[in-house]
Nucleic acid binder design. Structure first.
Length: 267
DNA sequence: CTAATCACCTGAAGGC
DNA sequence: TGCCTTCAGGTGATTA
């Protein structure tokens, strides 16, 4: 479900609701949703600050970290009053503060909350965030030039840059006129720079729109995003391309539903 | 190194 | 109505 803009929206909302709150207890109703990598006590720890890297949320606690990945259907729902929460509605983890409540709701149970002592080493396999300032156009172009992967799989991999998912990858490739199966190292530097700018522009615009809601995504207040109103290819199979009127095609590629305009994105 | 498939889960939607 | 298949904002392991 959530890609970089949705996770960023969740992070921003959580910053305004749970920073400074003290954990009273944590309960995992579905044990696999909470990976308590050690039995360190979380009780009494305070959420000091919140970071994000790609699709990972990082809650910096007094002495350790909670790292959260929402995967496909995960939601973090915040309540000032416990009486407003429905504990039976696919709730997998309960985080109770001395004042306030954070519920991890996850229909498909793919999401995870990891309790770790070293956030950096836990995330070593995750590449720099797609909006990180150190990911410059030149860094991006060089990593493309060094890879023989198709560009769709490259952007989805999280290894070179993190945060891009199926929606924003399809949208960024359309905006750049790049065929999804094109090899990363075959994209000319001019075109690669264009892809970089489109990718960041699309991500930032979606953050402005509080992310995209297709079905499950909600922010911690239960609100949907509105960025889905501006998709050019995702979910538009058979509808006319907004640029050239050619019907948008959907194929299975890199293991995912892949939307593109056969005319604007020539092989 | 890259690519493809399965696994982890549940629910919605479409075909018959 | 009901059954069966396919698909879904993701990723990690395993197999070619």
């Amino acid at each position: 479900m959530p890609e970089l803009p949705e996770v960023e929206t969740v992070a921003n909302e959580l910053r305004s609701s749970v920073i400074g709150k003290k954990i009273e207890y944590i309960e995992a109703l579905w044990s696999r949703s909470f990976d308590n990598r050690d039995d360190n006590l979380l009780t009494e720890q305070v959420i000091e600050s919140i970071d994000r890297r790609g699709k990972y949320l990082i809650l910096n606690l007094t002495r350790s970290f909670l790292i959260i990945h929402l995967r496909m259907t995960g939601q973090l729902l915040y309540f000032d009053n416990e009486s407003d929460a429905d504990f039976n509605d696919y709730i997998r983890v309960i985080i109770k503060f001395s004042n306030g409540l954070l519920l991890f709701r996850d229909v498909r149970k793919f999401g995870r909350i990891y309790h770790v002592h070293d956030a950096q080493s836990f995330l070593t396999h995750v590449g720099p965030d797609a909006l990180d300032k150190k990911v410059t156009a030149s860094v991006f172009k060089n990593s493309l030039a060094a890879s023989k992967m198709n560009i769709k799989a490259f952007l989805l991999s999280q290894k070179y840059i993190s945060g891009m998912g199926n929606i924003y990858t399809d949208e960024a490739l359309f905006a750049s006129g790049i065929y999804p199966a094109k090899t990363a190292d075959s994209i000319k530097r001019r075109k690669a720079e264009n892809l970089f700018l489109n990718m960041q522009g699309i991500l930032k615009a979606s953050i402005q729109n509080m992310g995209s809601t297709i079905s499950d995504y909600r922010d911690p207040s239960g609100n949907k995003g509105t960025n889905q109103l501006y998709f050019n290819v995702y979910g538009r199979e058979g509808q006319p391309c907004k640029v050239c009127k050619t019907p948008i095609k959907k194929i299975k590629f890199a293991g995912r539903g892949t939307h593109f305009c056969p005319r604007c994105q020539r092989a």
